[in-house]
Simulated scan of single mutants.
Amino acid sequence: MTLCRGCCCGTARKHPQVDHDGQLDQLRHGVGAADRVRRSECLNVCDRSNVLVVQPTPAARRAGARPVWLAEVLDPVVLAAVADWVRAGGPGAAPLPPSLRPHVMPAPRWGPLRGRGGAGR
């Protein structure tokens, strides 16, 4: 799983009511393996922050599963649902929990990246 942090997502400037470090800790603790949660400096979908991408397992990927992009993940209850889903197998291995459906967003289609922030900024 990749959690956007740095530019807009994960900053008190944009979401002062959210404990961004606490979110990262909750996910790392919730999935049971800290190495399964990575931080990205910017995923270039700042208008949908906080964004995270849940990767399928290698076996699920070979079977055709694709990453699932989740937007506006600001609530600890939503983070708990993400962690539960990942522990159950995630994309392609476990059904998407109904509580996460409103957060699913299409994967962005980026053009050539321009500068530090990339396209779409």
Results as ranks from 00 to 15, higher is better:
Met1Gly: 01
Thr2Trp: 00
Thr2Asn: 00
Leu3Glu: 01
Leu3Cys: 00
Leu3Asn: 00
Cys4Asn: 01
Cys4Ile: 01
Arg5Ala: 04
Gly6Phe: 02
Cys8Leu: 12
Thr11Glu: 03
Arg13Ile: 11
Lys14Glu: 13
His15Lys: 09
Pro16Val: 15
Asp21Lys: 11
Asp21Cys: 10
Leu24Thr: 13
Gln26Asn: 06
Gln26Cys: 06
Leu27Ala: 04
Arg28Gln: 08
Arg28Pro: 02
Arg28Asp: 03
Arg28Leu: 05
Val31Ala: 05
Ala34Asn: 08
Asp35Thr: 09
Arg36Trp: 08
Val37Ser: 01
Arg38Ala: 06
Ser40Glu: 08
Ser40Val: 07
Asn44Cys: 08
Arg48Ala: 10
Ser49Tyr: 05
Asn50Ile: 03
Asn50Leu: 03
Val53Thr: 01
Gln55Ser: 03
Pro56Glu: 00
Pro58Leu: 03
Ala59Asp: 14
Ala60Ile: 05
Arg61His: 08
Arg62Gln: 14
Ala63Gly: 08
Ala63Thr: 08
Ala65Ile: 07
Pro67Lys: 07
Pro67Glu: 03
Val68Tyr: 02
Val68Thr: 10
Trp69Asp: 00
Leu70Thr: 03
Leu79Val: 06
Ala80Asn: 09
Ala80His: 07
Val82Ala: 02
Ala83His: 02
Trp85Cys: 02
Val86Phe: 00
Val86Glu: 00
Arg87Thr: 10
Gly89Asp: 07
Gly90Ser: 04
Gly90Asp: 02
Gly92Tyr: 02
Ala94Gln: 05
Pro95Asp: 02
Val104Cys: 11
Met105Ser: 12
Met105Thr: 15
Pro106Ser: 13
Pro106Ile: 13
Pro106Phe: 10
Ala107Arg: 15
Ala107Tyr: 13
Trp110Ser: 15
Arg114Asp: 12
Arg114Ile: 13
Gly118Lys: 07
Gly120Asp: 13
Gly120His: 09
Arg121Ser: 09
Arg121Cys: 10
Arg121Tyr: 15
